[in-house]
Amino acid sequence: MDNFKIGEEVYVIYRNPHAVNVANIEKAEIVEHPTNQKELAIFLHDAYHPLAEDDAVFSSFEEAEELYNQLFDYQQFD
Rank of each mutant, 00 (worst) to 15 (best):
E29H: 02
Y68I: 13
D54N: 12
N69I: 13
A56F: 09
I30F: 04
Q75D: 09
I30L: 04
Y48M: 04
G7N: 09
E62F: 05
P34E: 01
L71S: 15
E53S: 13
V20F: 05
K5V: 08
N69S: 15
F77L: 10
A52D: 10
I42S: 04
S60W: 03
A47R: 10
D54H: 03
K38F: 08
E65D: 14
T35P: 00
E32I: 14
V12C: 14
A56T: 10
M1E: 11
N69R: 14
F4A: 05
V12F: 05
N16R: 08
S59V: 06
E62I: 07
E32L: 14
A23R: 03
A19H: 05
V57Q: 05
I6C: 03
L44W: 00
D2F: 06
H49R: 14
A19D: 12
E29V: 11
A23G: 01
N16E: 05
R15W: 03
P50N: 06
E63N: 12
D54M: 03
P17E: 02
D55M: 06
V10E: 01
E39T: 10
E63C: 02
Q76S: 09
H18F: 12
H33T: 08
E53V: 10
F43R: 06
Q76D: 05
H18R: 12
S60M: 05
H49L: 15
N21G: 04
H33C: 04
Q75Y: 04
E9A: 14
A47P: 07
E39G: 09
V12N: 02
A28D: 05
E53F: 12
V31T: 11
F4G: 03
D78I: 00
K27A: 03
D46H: 15
E9Q: 12
A41I: 07
F72M: 11
L51K: 02
E63P: 07
I13S: 09
A64K: 11
E66Q: 15
A56P: 06
N3Q: 06
L51S: 05
A64E: 09
V31L: 05
E26S: 09
Y48A: 11
M1S: 13
T35V: 11
A23V: 00
F43A: 13
D55L: 03
A19P: 02
Y11D: 07
F77M: 08
N36W: 00
M1G: 15
A56L: 13
I25Y: 01
A41N: 04
A64Y: 12
E32M: 11
E65F: 09
G7S: 10
A41R: 02
S59T: 07
V22M: 04
S60C: 08
